[in-house]
Write a protein that binds this DNA or RNA. Structure first.
Lengths: 347, 347
DNA sequence: TTGAAAGCGCTAACAT
DNA sequence: ATGTTAGCGCTTTCAA
C-alpha cells in the first residue's frame, strides 16, 4: 500500500511498465513514443494515456545504447566573450526547442592537447548528435582535425578560412566594418583610428574592411592608426590610452568589439573628454555592453542569435544539409546610438 | 585493408575490444578504468597500454545503464542575468574539473508548468548526478517540489527562505547592503535613494540592509526613497529617471545590481550630470558590468564564483555533505571604484 | 498491426 | 586477482 506512494518518488516507470499496463508489447510502446511504424490509432491512444498516467519518459542513455540518434546538441566554447556566447546560445536554444532537442553548453578550459581531450570527453562520453563551435575553436585546425576523425557532425561559427571540413555559418564582417568606416567618414571625420582584435599578422576581415573604406576615400592608410586589443575590455584599455595620449589624437576611434569600444569610452571619460563631440567611438557586435555604456554605442549588429539558430538548424536537419563546404551567410546591419557625431570643428 | 583507416574514423573501441586485445576479461578492464577492486599492477599497466593504443573511452550511456553513478552536474537557469550566471558557471566548472565531472548548462524558457517539464526532461533524460539551481529557480516552491519528488540531489543558490528541502549556499546580502549604505553615509551623504530588485511586497534582504543602516544613522526611512527595478538595466532606467527628475534629487543612489547601477549612470550622463561629484552611485555583484562602465562602479563583491564551486562541491562529495537544511555562507566584500565620492557641498 | 528476441556497452554481484 | 554472467531500458530486425 505504501508501495504506490513510494514508487512515485523513487522508481521511474520503464517502457516495460507501460507495455504491461497497456497490455501491449514494448515494441509497440516504442513505436508510439517515436511516432514510427504503423500503430492502430486506438492502440496509440491507449498507450499514450498510460504513458501519461505513469509519467513515463524514456531515458536518453537507454535510447542511445539501443541505437537511436540522440536529439541533443552541444555548444562548446573556449572564450569568445560572454556577450557573444550568450546570444549564440539563445539562438541555438530557440531552434533546438522547436524540434525537441536539448542544448548543453560546455566551457572548455585547456588549450592545445588538453583541449582535444576535453572535446573527446564530450563527444565520446556524452555522444551528442552534433557540435556547435564558436571562435576561436572554429578556426583551430587542431580542433577541426580531431573532430573530423571522430566523425561527429559539427558546424563552425564565423571561421575565417574555409577548409571544407564542415558547414559553417558566418556574416560578412569585412563589409560591415567597411560600412561603419564609411559612416564615420560621412560624418566628416578624417582622422580615424582602428582598434582591432586580431594580431597584425593575421588576415583580419575587420581590419580589411576598415582599409577598404579608407582607401576608397583616398585617405592614407597609416599603420599607426591601427591598434590591437584582443577583443577584450582590458586589451582595449591599453590601446585606447596609447591612442588618446597622442598630441594629435584621432577624432574617431573604431573598435572591432563592443568591449574594446567600452574601454575607449572609459578612457575618454577618465580624461574628461566630452562624447561624442570631442571623440566619436564605434563598437562591433551589438552586445549587451553596447546598450549599457554611456553614451550608447553606435555599433554593427552582428546576427549572433541567427548564427546560433542557423547552426542548430543544420545539425537538426542533418544531411544533406550538413555537407562540408556549405556556407550560410547572415546579414548584419548598422545601429546608431549616441557615441558618434560630426567632429567638433577644430580650426 | 581500408578497414583499418575506416575504423579509426567510424568505429569506437568497446570494453570488449580492450579485453580481447589485452587478453583479459571485460571485468578487469572495468576495474582498471574505475580504479576499483584489486588488479595486479602488471595487468593494470597492460590494460592501460591497450586502452591508450585503442583510444578507448567508456560511454556515459552504457555506464549509466549499467548502474554507475554519473559524474555529471547540470546547471539550469532561467534568467538571473548573464553576468551572474557566467561567474557561477565558471566556479562550478572549476570545481567539477577537479574530480573529472562534467558540467552542462541549460537555459530554461518556460515558467509555471512548462518549466516543470523542462526540468524533468533534463533530469529524466540526461540523468545527471545533481543539479545546481540559481535564483529565481532556487526560490520557486514549485520547482523545489517537482525536484524533490523525483529524488535528484540539488543545491540552491541564494534562496531567500529556508524550506529545508536541499542544501543551499548563499552570502549575506543584507549585511552587504547595510555596509554599502554605511559607506555612503560615511562619505557624508544624507539624501540616499535605493533602487532594489524585488517588489515592495517581498522580504528583500537588500532593502532590509539599506533600512538597517538608515535607521542606524537615525535618518528617516522614507518609502519614497525606494524604487524597484527588477535587477535589470531596463528596470533601472525607469527608476533612475523618476529619481533624477525630482526637484530635489538624491545625492547618492544605491542600486541592488550592477545592471541597474549602470542604468543610473546612463541616465545621469544623459542629463549632463558630472559623476561622482554631483551624484554617487553604487552597484551590487561586482560583475563584468561594474568594471566597464564609466566611472567604474563602487559595488559589493558577491562571491559568485565561490557560490558555484561550493555548490558543485556539495554535489560531488554527496551525502553526508548533501543533507537538506545544510547552509553554506560565503563572505562578500566592498570594492571601491570611481562612482562614489563625498557629496558636492550645496549650501 | 503487433510481438518476440537479440543486442547496444557497461557495471556489479557472484564465482573461481 | 580475475573471470562469468545477469541485467540496465531501449531500438530494431524478423516473424506472426
Amino acid at each position: 500500500m505504501a508501495r504506490n506512494a513510494q514508487d512515485k518518488t523513487t522508481k521511474r516507470a520503464t517502457i516495460q511498465d507501460v507495455a504491461d499496463a497497456a497490455g501491449v508489447s514494448i515494441a509497440t510502446v516504442s513505436r508510439v513514443v517515436n511516432g514510427e511504424g504503423q500503430v492502430r490509432s486506438a492502440t496509440r491512444e491507449l498507450v499514450l494515456a498510460v504513458i501519461d498516467s505513469l509519467r513515463y519518459r524514456p531515458t536518453l542513455s537507454a535510447r542511445q545504447l539501443g541505437g537511436a540518434r540522440s536529439k541533443w546538441i552541444a555548444l562548446v566554447y573556449q572564450n569568445p566573450g560572454i556577450g557573444f556566447m550568450h546570444l549564440v546560445q539563445s539562438g541555438a536554444v530557440d531552434r533546438c526547442r522547436n524540434d525537441g532537442y536539448m542544448l548543453s553548453v560546455h566551457a572548455c578550459q585547456f588549450t592545445g592537447s588538453g583541449l582535444d581531450r576535453e572535446l573527446l570527453d564530450i563527444v565520446d562520453q556524452l555522444q551528442p548528435s552534433g557540435l556547435i563551435l564558436p571562435p576561436p575553436m572554429s578556426v583551430s585546425p587542431q580542433v577541426i582535425e580531431t573532430l573530423g576523425k571522430c566523425g561527429i557532425p559539427f558546424v563552425r561559427l564565423c571561421p575565417q578560412e574555409d577548409d571544407h571540413r564542415s558547414p559553417r555559418v558566418w556574416f560578412d564582417d569585412r563589409s560591415a566594418m567597411q560600412a561603419m568606416t564609411r559612416h564615420v567618414l560621412d560624418l566628416g571625420h578624417r582622422d580615424i583610428a582602428l582598434i582591432t582584435g586580431l594580431p597584425a599578422t593575421s588576415p583580419d576581415p575587420r581590419r580589411l574592411g576598415y582599409l577598404d573604406a579608407v582607401r576608397e576615400a583616398r585617405l592614407p592608410a597609416a599603420e599607426r592608426n591601427i591598434s590591437y586589443g584582443a577583443y577584450t575590455f582590458e586589451g582595449g584599455l591599453a590601446a585606447a590610452q596609447a591612442l588618446l595620449q597622442r598630441k594629435r589624437r584621432p577624432s574617431a576611434i573604431l573598435a572591432a568589439s563592443d568591449d574594446m569600444a567600452a574601454a575607449v569610452l572609459h578612457t575618454a571619460h577618465a580624461m574628461g573628454l566630452h562624447l561624442p563631440d570631442e571623440l566619436s567611438v564605434t563598437g562591433f557586435d551589438d552586445s549587451y555592453v553596447s546598450t549599457i555604456v554611456s553614451p550608447g554605442l553606435t555599433t554593427v549588429h552582428a546576427p549572433l542569435h541567427e548564427l546560433g539558430s542557423a547552426a542548430a538548424d543544420l545539425l537538426i536537419k542533418g544531411p544533406p544539409d550538413m555537407q562540408a563546404g556549405l556556407v550560410i551567410n547572415r546579414p548584419w546591419r548598422l545601429v546608431q546610438r549616441g557615441s558618434t557625431a560630426a567632429p567638433a570643428s577644430r580650426t
